[in-house]
Amino acid sequence: MNQSPKKLAELYRHTLLDNVIPFWENYSIDNEYGGYFTCLDRDGSVYDTDKFTWLQARQVWTFSKLYNHVERRPNWLEVAKKGYRFLKQNGCDEKGNWYFSCNRQGEPLVQPYNIFSDCFAALGFHEYSQATGDEEARNIAVQTYRNIHDRQDNPKGKYEKSVPGTRPLKGFALPMMLSVLNLEMEDILESEQVEQSFERCTQEVMEVFWDPERKVMHEYVLEDGTFSDSYEGRLVNPGHGIEAMWFIMEIARRRSDQELIERAVDITLDLLELGWDQQYGGIYYFLDSDGHPPLQLEWTQKLWWVHLETLISLSKGYLFTGREECMEWYEKIHDYSWSHFSDEEHGEWFGYLNRRGERYTSLKGSKWKGCFHVPRAMYECWQTFEALDQQDR
């Protein structure tokens, strides 16, 4: 290991508390209408005021999480409250389905077609209820979780564009997301439902979407779990699969299932072998499982969240197994990520690089990038390296 666990823990702690969180505190708060601005340029200047439900909820989760697990700072709880109140008032329709976006004032812009708005609303409201004891926040989180389960077999509902029956696909993202929802919310859910959901999610991620012959995690498979020889069926997002593996590791740790942890580490390493750009470094955004040209023209881009989630998976993999391959890969990803994405001058991390590792855009936040992946990774890696430091003593 190039740096000691103690030094790495301090790097992540310092970056989280003194660099990343101040950026969002200083620039994202909408003191007039509530909620947060997420379309922020490099220096924190706002370039668009639309509010995207999943990013609003992610920021509620982030500041509530800090308040609950790092330090009970009143200013962090106040930031979380800004987003909670905005979402409670404006975020969903009369049936409890969460809009994709609103304008600055809170008027809905995009219908509730995206179930991940609901997923992050449940996460954010649950964590906020843990910070405040707010019973209404807790009830909304539980009801939203139930709505997600009711929709999981047809997540887009009436907004689904595909013709039923011709090529019936199911996606990897929802069982992956339900894995972390169960981990985060199990203290307020019925234990039998949580266990059943854990079992279903683990089985789907590890047995249905993971393809041991191709050594890829498919983003889509046919409804019967078989391979679809199509653009969608061949689509691979290495970062998505790697992120899911640290969720699986945490489920396995909860169950004292060392064999499952080892399998999750194996898959992490296989996906890195597939996704690493041997010429320029960094992890590809998309690939085709059979080596054909991907449909996504941005497939060669290097994204912040892909690398951050990989740092989490590798550090946890090393903590749980001690396997040297995890630390070898960790150091490679660490060196690339910190030298390319981190912005020491203005704070936070850049989001998008081209294949050569050159900055593609100056943004720090957008419709897709908000106050979530960077702070969560800083927190998770901080805690993991502190645990490794304790092991070394």
Rank of each mutant, 00 (worst) to 15 (best):
N2A: 13
S4V: 05
P5W: 00
K6I: 10
K7Y: 04
K7H: 08
L8Y: 06
Y12M: 02
Y12L: 02
T15C: 09
D18E: 13
N19F: 02
I21A: 03
W24C: 03
D30Q: 13
N31Q: 15
Y33W: 14
Y33T: 14
Y36C: 08
D41I: 13
D43V: 05
G44F: 00
S45D: 11
T49C: 10
T53P: 00
W61E: 10
W61S: 00
T62H: 08
Y67N: 08
H69T: 12
V70S: 10
N75Y: 14
V79I: 15
A80Q: 09
A80V: 02
K82C: 08
G83D: 01
K88T: 03
K88W: 00
G91M: 07
C92Q: 05
G96T: 10
F100E: 13
S101H: 15
R104C: 11
E107T: 08
P108R: 04
I115S: 06
D118A: 12
F120R: 00
A121S: 04
A121R: 02
E127Q: 15
G133N: 07
D134A: 03
Y145F: 09
N147G: 07
H149Q: 09
R151A: 05
N154H: 11
N154E: 11
V163N: 07
V163A: 09
F172W: 09
A173C: 09
P175Y: 14
L178G: 00
V180G: 08
L183P: 06
L183E: 07
M185T: 05
I188F: 02
I188K: 02
S191F: 04
Q193L: 06
V194S: 11
C201D: 08
T202L: 15
W210Q: 01
D211H: 04
K215E: 01
K215D: 00
Y220F: 15
L222V: 04
E223C: 10
E223G: 05
G225P: 01
G225I: 06
G225V: 05
G225D: 03
S228A: 13
D229W: 09
D229N: 12
E232N: 04
P238Q: 11
G239R: 11
G239T: 07
G241W: 12
E250F: 01
I251V: 12
R255H: 14
D257K: 12
Q258G: 07
I261H: 01
R263S: 09
R263E: 12
D266N: 10
I267H: 04
I267L: 08
W276I: 04
Y280M: 07
G281R: 09
S289I: 04
S289A: 15
D290N: 02
G291A: 04
H292F: 06
P293A: 06
P294L: 08
L295S: 10
L295F: 14
T300H: 07
T300S: 10
Q301F: 09
V306T: 12
L311C: 09
Y318F: 12
E324C: 11
E328H: 13
Y330T: 03
E331D: 15
K332R: 15
H334N: 15
D335K: 13
Y336A: 08
S337N: 05
H340L: 05
F341D: 05
G347I: 15
G347C: 11
R359T: 10
R359K: 14
L363A: 15
K364M: 10
G365F: 06
K367Y: 13
K369H: 03
G370Q: 05
R376T: 03
M378F: 03
F385L: 04
A387F: 02
A387V: 00
A387D: 03
D389R: 01
D389F: 01
Q391H: 07
